[in-house]
Design a protein around this nucleic acid. Structure first.
Length: 784
RNA sequence: GCCAGUGUGGUGAAAUUGGUAGACACGCCGGAUUCAAAAUCCGGUUCCUUCACGGGAGUGGCGGUUCAAGUCCGCCCACUGGUACCA
């Protein structure tokens, strides 16, 4: 993933791009044609904050940061193709995303609706969730208010099923990311049904539609709960000041699911009644702060006997609790005084549906409601449409013109890009675009009348959803993408932090499908293999400015060189785990590289020959075996496991063995075996420490550069071993170890084990019950 | 709250398919070298017990499956990421 140009390269970047560069160089050594590009996710909030703080325009600040960070990346020696560099704030880039949005507009895949934002009433600006701290604006300290404003949405929910189904194709992705995305999309099967509202004259409010995944509990409904923003709630509030007060109270909480879900459950009786679709019983209608207007219809049927949240709410407000499900088996406990009984079971107190189990009741009740026109089965998704409007300056302008006569009109291709004015002054009251007449005053492209341009900008996830494709053809000025995109796509290996597991990766998958449907790419998914790297920690917590525990890579590069820094980040832990920063660990990597230099430079290079004719001593055979065992292991670590830490450890082991071997007198054959071990070691380290390896490879007698050298091959004949180490256990505890011939038969091995002095001690006072033999590994004698 | 993940020596970690727990490093301790130090090299280093040989315990906690569990299952605890406007 490309970085946000914050102005400083941090260790998270160093880690991400060191992993990527290592993998890219490895693939190159395997003979692949590798594209390794780099770019900048250049729009976003921090530029606006910096602009206010330092009185510098976001564009200038951003371009300055990019220049500085590019230099830092170059110092780390990453093998990027800089001719493909992208900055998303450049009009050549965002014009295509504007163009694409107008295509989506034509296809009816975008629409405008009212949605809530965090409003700071003092600064008169919309706040991001992270800018609201304990319910107050971060600068003004004012209590935030929820406020509804019209915003653009893209219909990602139209693709919910495909996004879910295609997760199964992504076998190169970590299981945890697929699980998280699947849960996020949140497909459920249930029933949508209508409750009539008693004595309601307004036709549009006469029925309350609710969705439930538990239609089997329908006869246990004792009240209904509405979101505070539900139209019926707003209508009821017109004649009820207590409701107005409740709705206002719910207004001072930020627009975030975590806030909603952890706040104290509260509700209020609207006084309205709903009629149960089967029993016609009158049920109270409550407003409840845990009902989300954005999920389902903003109304839920409450079954306190069989839903824990409904149960707690009913207890708090003294509402009825009616049991309609009993446990299927005796050992399940159902005590409705203590808690709700939420498991599926057998229906009771449900009239004609008594005795049915969950599946039977689901079908029967759906059928009953269907026949009477009161409900039907429905598949529902938790996923909501993608809101792409931001009331900010530093982003791509949304290419729409609002005309009084024609409505929302997309900007014609010929007028794209809609350029963001870059020479501006920012103050604390938000986006200046609404004050720039030369920006927003335009004529309607359809009728020519005076009209106004959208002054909202795109969510920055728009830019990061397709940049990977643009790398393939970033010099293309006549189209968003061309045929080169399909040559390179899908991306074979994508690397980024686990924090992007849902939002960025889901939007990018969605965007890719939109581009496919537009005929721009022919693949279904953007990223074949995904590696989610862990965070970089210092003293056990995430490096951050606020904690003051950041480590700046630059002084380390100056002190030790890029290779040392790269090596430490690859050695300290496997890529998908968090990495604990350690200054003495860096020192250790530096020491290793110095030792490597010494071992190689004290060796007299010679040309490698054929080993098949040579007869080797035991020590020589052993070192050769170690060399080829190491090549085998390290190749697997690179290609399949991506555990570069163990690859480095194995190479260290090999070099330790070379070092011990080289201490004794050396003949020609010894030198040959050392040459082979050193060549393999350099090649295996080359993707991680390219500068060191480049020089040492040439020292060893090669004219070619190590970056063009092929990956080392395993000589199977060198791997052969004649003996095996067998562990002897008594009752699962290790008591001895013996070295035996590899082809030993079971009976002999069993006898050897039983006769072993250390084993006899533990077996002679009991009876041998069983002997388990795992060939080539262990013997376990079970005694009692 | 919900979803996902992580938890192993003094520290970072390894153990890949249920089969030797702690590879490889860092740190520390001891030695060599040095006038001395740094650097370098060699050796030791899970804990408890033992002069030693050996023995016992041990992978966040409790329980289970198995000849055998860091690894599989159940419950619990702590921490991390995400939670739709940070990117």
């Amino acid at each position: 993933m490309f970085p946000y140009p914050s102005g400083h390269l941090h260790m998270g970047h160093v880690r991400n791009y060191s992993i990527g560069d290592t993998m890219a160089r490895f693939q190159r050594m395997l003979g692949k044609n590798v594209l390794q590009p780099m770019g900048w996710d250049a729009f976003g909030l921090p530029a606006e904050n910096a602009a206010i703080q330092n009185k510098v325009a976001p564009a200038k600040w951003t371009y300055g940061n990019i220049n500085y960070m590019r230099e830092q990346l170059q110092r780390l020696g990453y093998a990027y193709d800089w001719s493909r560099e992208i900055a998303t704030c450049h009009p050549d880039y965002y014009r295509w995303e504007q163009w694409f949005f107008t295509r989506l507009f034509e296809k009816g895949l975008v629409y405008k609706k009212e949605a809530e934002v965090n409003w700071d009433p003092v600064d008169q600006t919309v706040l991001a969730n992270e800018q609201v701290i304990d319910g107050r604006g971060w600068r003004s300290g004012a209590l935030v208010e929820r406020r509804k404003i019209p915003q653009w949405f893209i219909k990602i929910t139209d693709f919910a099923q495909e996004l879910l189904d295609d997760l199964e194709k992504l076998d190169g992705w970590p299981e945890k990311v697929r699980t998280m995305q699947s849960n996020w999309i949140g497909r459920s099967e249930g029933v949508e049904l209508d409750f009539e509202v008693a004595n309601e004259n307004d036709a549009s409010l006469q029925t309350l539609s609710v969705y439930t995944t538990r239609p089997d509990t329908l006869l246990g409904v004792t009240y209904l709960a509405l979101a505070a923003q539900h139209p019926l709630a707003l209508k009821a509030a017109e004649s009820n000041p207590a409701l107005v007060k409740f709705i206002e109270q719910q207004n001072n909480i930020k627009v975030a699911e975590a806030e909603m879900a952890t706040m104290e459950k509260a509700g209020i009786d609207t006084g309205l009644k709903a009629l149960h679709p089967i029993t016609q019983q009158q049920l109270p209608i409550y407003l409840a702060n845990f009902v989300l207007m954005s999920y389902g219809s903003g109304a839920v049927m409450a079954v306190p006997a069989h839903d824990q949240r409904d149960w707690e709410f009913a207890k708090k407000y003294g509402l009825a609790i009616a049991q309609v499900i009993k446990p299927e088996s005796e050992d399940e406990i159902c005590d409705l005084e203590q808690q709700a009984f939420v498991s599926k079971g057998i229906l009771i107190n449900s009239g004609e549906f008594d005795g049915l189990n969950f599946n039977q009741a689901f079908e029967a009740i759906a059928k009953y409601l269907g026949e009477r026109g009161k409900g039907s089965k429905k598949v529902n998704f938790r996923l909501r449409d993608w809101g792409v409007s931001r009331q900010r300056y530093w982003g791509s302008p949304i290419p729409i013109i609002n005309c009084e006569a024609c409505g929302a009109v997309p900007v014609p291709d010929a007028d794209l890009p809609v350029r963001l004015p870059e020479d501006i002054d920012l103050d604390e009251s938000g986006s200046p675009l609404g004050k720039l007449a030369e920006f927003y005053k335009v004529n309607c492209p359809k009728c020519g009348a005076a009209a106004t341009r959208e002054t909202d900008t795109f969510d920055t996830f728009m830019e990061s959803s397709w940049y990977y494709a643009r790398y393939a053809c970033r010099d293309q000025t006549n189209a968003m993408l061309d045929e080169r995109a399909d040559y390179w796509l899908p991306v074979d290996q994508y690397i980024g932090g686990i924090e992007h597991a849902i939002l960025h990766l889901l939007y990018a998958r969605f965007f890719h499908k939109l581009m496919r449907n537009e005929g721009l790419v022919n693949s279904d998914e953007p990223f074949t293999h995904l590696l989610t790297q862990g965070m970089v920690l210092k003293d056990g917590s995430k490096m951050s400015k606020s904690k003051g525990n950041t480590v700046d890579p630059l002084p380390l590069i100056e002190k030790y060189g890029a290779d040392t820094v790269r090596m430490f980040t690859m050695f300290a832990s496997p890529p998908d785990q968090s990495l604990e920063w350690s200054d003495s660990g860096v020192e250790g990597s530096f020491r290793f590289l110095k030792r490597l230099w010494k071992i190689v430079s004290s060796h007299e290079p010679l040309a490698l020959g054929d080993f098949s004719g040579l007869s080797l001593s035991a020590e020589q055979t052993q070192l050769r075996r170690k060399t080829h065992q190491t090549i085998q292991k390290v190749s697997d670590d690179y290609a399949r496991r991506h555990t570069f830490n163990t690859a480095i450890a194995a190479t260290m082991e090999l070099l330790n063995a070379v070092s011990r071997f080289a201490d004794s007198e050396q003949g020609e054959t010894d030198k040959l075996i050392i040459q082979e071990a050193l060549e393999a070691s350099i090649l295996m380290l080359a993707p991680i420490v390219p500068h060191f390896s480049h020089v040492l490879w040439q020292y060893l007698g090669h004219a070619e550069a190590v970056i063009d050298a092929p990956w080392p091959q395993v000589d199977e004949s060198a791997l052969k071993e004649s003996t095996a180490l067998i562990v002897l256990q008594v009752n699962g505890k290790v008591r001895a170890k013996i070295e035996v011939a590899k082809d030993i038969d079971k009976a002999t091995l069993e006898r050897l084990a039983q006769e072993h002095e250390s084993i006899k001690k533990f077996t002679e006072n009991g009876t041998v019950r069983k002997i388990i033999i795992v060939p080539g590994r262990l013997v376990n004698i079970v005694v009692s």
